[in-house]
Computed example of a mutant assay.
Amino acid sequence: MTVSGIDRLHSQLGKLEDMFPGYVTEIVEGSIVVNPVRPFHGKTIQRVWALLETQLPPAWALVSGVAFPFDDANEFCPDIAVIPAEAEAENRSAYPADLIELVAEVVSPESVRRDYEVKPRWYASRGIADYLVLDPLKSHVVTMWNPASDGYRGRDVIPYGPDLTVDSPLGKLTLTTGRLPVDPKARAVS
């Protein structure tokens, strides 16, 4: 796809987002994906954002819902991405994926496969040091680290409850998981 083709696609995605407020739009494996945002999704993002923001070194900043093109068929809008503060200050709608140091996605019923299977391959292939999957459906966090060209070499599943410390290149980051929302249907199934 040419640069003008990518610009056209960005324009189309922007129009879709305007037409469907309350939905997140991404390009995943060549398909345009539109997902509804649920209250637990947003609440999880807000709580994790607040925790991370106070712990990040000044040279780093958080962004959410902005585009990170990986190739012509994959452009993700992470729920939370940590990028250099200097880049964030440019206030753009899209950034190079190589800027991301840590990324977090919140699972929704529609995003399970993408968050657990598709995105880890892409995030790891770009050398993103840490990937967190916050899952209100299963009441746990999956941490992935040690990126390689075909995925992450390290992976832990931590139930919501205790504090989680991520030993990242940004320093030790602690997330309080006991206050993260859990889908009521997940409690019935667990």
Rank of each mutant, 00 (worst) to 15 (best):
T2N: 13
T2V: 02
V3E: 15
S4D: 14
G5F: 05
G5K: 10
G5C: 08
D7R: 15
L9A: 10
Q12E: 15
L13H: 01
G14L: 07
G14M: 06
G14I: 01
G14K: 10
G14H: 08
K15E: 15
K15L: 15
L16K: 09
D18E: 15
Y23G: 00
V24M: 08
T25Q: 04
I27Q: 07
E29T: 13
I32E: 09
I32M: 12
V34H: 06
V34N: 09
N35R: 15
V37D: 03
V37G: 04
R38G: 06
F40H: 11
H41C: 10
H41M: 11
G42F: 03
Q46M: 12
Q46I: 05
W49S: 01
W49F: 11
A50V: 00
L51T: 02
E53G: 05
L56V: 02
L56S: 05
L56G: 01
A59P: 04
W60I: 02
A61H: 06
L62K: 05
G65E: 03
A67E: 07
F68R: 04
P69Q: 09
D71V: 09
D72F: 00
A73Q: 12
F76Q: 00
P78Q: 02
A81Q: 00
I83D: 01
I83C: 06
P84M: 08
A85N: 07
A85K: 04
E86R: 14
E88N: 08
A89T: 11
N91R: 15
N91W: 12
A94E: 07
A94F: 06
Y95V: 05
E101Y: 00
A104R: 00
A104S: 11
E105S: 13
V107T: 14
V112K: 09
R113Y: 14
R114T: 15
R114L: 09
Y116V: 06
Y116N: 13
Y116G: 07
E117I: 08
V118P: 02
P120M: 10
R121G: 03
Y123N: 05
Y123E: 01
A124I: 04
A124V: 02
R126W: 05
G127K: 07
I128R: 00
I128P: 00
L134Q: 00
L137H: 08
K138I: 03
V141G: 04
V141T: 06
V142S: 06
M144W: 00
M144C: 09
M144A: 06
N146G: 11
N146L: 12
A148V: 02
S149F: 07
S149Q: 12
S149E: 15
G151A: 14
Y152I: 03
R153M: 12
G154T: 05
G154H: 08
R155Q: 15
R155T: 12
R155Y: 04
V157N: 08
V157G: 03
V157Q: 13
Y160I: 07
P162N: 09
D163W: 01
T165Q: 06
D167Y: 03
D167A: 13
P169V: 07
L170W: 01
K172D: 13
K172F: 02
L173K: 01
T174W: 01
L175H: 01
T177Q: 03
G178A: 11
R179M: 07
P181R: 12
V182M: 12
D183Y: 06
D183E: 14
K185F: 09
K185A: 15
K185D: 13
A188Y: 11
